[in-house]
Structure formats: C-alpha cells, structure tokens
C-alpha cells in the first residue's frame, strides 16, 4: 500500500490495473460456472464432485485475493499478509475444530445400537 512517489495522482502499484480486474472477473465467472455445472450435471460420484467444488472455491478465493484485493503487492513489511495468514489459521482451527468436536460428541452421545449402526454404515462392516 505504499509507493515510492507519493504524489496524489500517481497510480500505485498495489492498486491494480484494468487488465488485473478483467482477468480476475473472467476467471471468477469461469470457476463459478464450472462448479455449478459439476453439481447440476453430477458427472462423478458425490464425493468427487464435493472435492472438486471445494477446490474450485479455494482457487476462486485466491484469484479474488490477488486480482481484486491485490494481496501480495504491498512492499516489504508485509503486515497485510501476516494478518491474513493469522486469520486463516484461526479460521481453520474454528471450523475444523468445531466439526471434529461436534462429530465426536455425536458419536459419544449414541446408544449402543446406534453406535453399531453407525459403524456398519460408516465403515461398511
């Protein structure tokens, strides 16, 4: 977010260009339509489609970070990226931690019959 020439009219490197916005927009549209088409046509197994759309969402996340928010374009003390990485760490802990704990609670809260059914269904025994 800093430039070597801080004159007001100077377009700064960290603010992107028309080409960047167009590239970001086009690739986001393609990624969105791809994910949509995968789900609507259901070409592969549910698990494969699930993995694909998750990957497409993460790719689009990075596309928009780079092309719209210009992450990574700031100069040396990269505080924006540091804050972003810390946020991602917290998000991963909160989301996966919650899912892990709640899954475990669900499992522990089952009656013995339910546990048997669960094991049968989940592990195909």
């Amino acid at each position: 977010m800093s430039s070597h020439l801080p004159t007001p009219a100077q377009p700064e490197a960290s603010h992107g260009s028309l080409r960047m916005y167009v590239t970001g927009f086009m690739s986001s549209v393609v990624l969105t339509l791809l994910a949509y088409a995968l789900v609507v046509n259901h070409l592969f197994s549910t698990r494969a489609v699930l993995a694909c759309i998750a990957v497409l969402a993460v790719v689009q996340f990075f596309v928009q970070l780079v092309f719209f928010l210009h992450v990574g374009k700031e100069s040396k003390p990269r505080w924006n990226i540091t804050a972003l990485l810390f946020m991602l760490l917290v998000v991963v802990i909160v989301v996966f931690g919650s899912l892990w704990i709640m899954n475990n609670l669900n499992y522990n809260g089952m009656t013995p019959t339910q546990t048997d059914q669960f094991i049968e269904k989940d592990e195909g025994l």
Binding site: A35, V39, H42, T46, V49, I53, A57, F61, F68, L69
Partner: peptide, 21 residues
C-alpha cells in the same frame, strides 16, 4: 470485494453442497 469472497463460500458450502445432499 471481501463480501464477494464470503459469498463464494456461501454459494459453495450452503447451496452447492446442499444440493448434493
């Protein structure tokens, strides 16, 4: 831009994954 980024995940997790049941 940030709100659009959040929507990517709402679209994927709530709607697309919801449609996959």
């Amino acid at each position: 831009h940030f709100l659009d980024i959040v929507w990517i995940f709402i679209f994927t997790i709530v709607y697309l994954m919801g449609a996959l049941r």
